[in-house]
Amino acid sequence: MTRYLTMAALSAAMMLGGCATTGRAGRPATSTPGETVRVAVGPCFGFCPVYSVSVAPDGAVHFVGERHTAVLGARTTRVPAPVPSALVRDLARYRPATGDDVPVACTAAVSDTSAYSVTWTDAAGRKTVARVQDACPGGPGQGLVRLLRALPSRLGIADWTKQVTRPGVSRG
């Protein structure tokens, strides 16, 4: 019985680990030089901030606040050159194979929280997408959520993404 449980645990760990590093066809996940990374934060059941932010390789940051953010609409800023390459490096383990659109594994789904979508767009316009639900309690998705929650501070836009409830604006 113990041997069976050990084998089951090892199999599950290998499957979850594989979800973070390869696409559907098992191709290795690789970034291409010059990729732009876009993170979209979707609505939740409450008054969660809804926004998107993209980071270009040259450090250009484009923010669009859609709902429940301190800043509504588009804003741009710049970050030092090492920031985009460090971001791409930190996100690399969650990047699917080029062209794939896949969820990053979590141990359980929490459906009333914001959903994150991370899109890598290469110079040819090919998109690669990883999706994860906020509040992921375990598995590779938990690490990705940690990175994404820290992104506004890392990009110097934390004040723009702060949660704001405005009169007459509904939840979600």
Rank of each mutant, 00 (worst) to 15 (best):
A123H: 07
G17C: 06
C19T: 13
G99L: 11
D122Q: 01
R93V: 15
T121E: 14
T165I: 15
A150H: 08
G141K: 00
A115N: 04
K162I: 03
A130L: 02
T2V: 13
S153N: 14
V164N: 02
G141D: 04
C136W: 13
G17Q: 05
R24F: 03
P140I: 03
P152Q: 12
V55T: 11
G139A: 09
T98M: 13
G172D: 13
V104K: 00
V88Q: 14
W160Y: 07
G143F: 11
A150R: 12
L151E: 08
A109Q: 07
P152T: 06
R38W: 00
G17V: 09
T119F: 00
V102L: 14
S117A: 15
G34E: 13
V41Y: 00
T69A: 13
K162P: 08
T98D: 13
T77R: 09
P43K: 15
P43L: 10
K127G: 11
F45M: 14
A130E: 05
R149C: 05
A74W: 12
A56P: 03
A109S: 09
A12Q: 14
A115D: 14
M1C: 10
R27F: 00
V64K: 04
S111V: 12
L148C: 10
R95G: 08
A40S: 14
R146V: 15
T165W: 10
R154Y: 06
T22N: 07
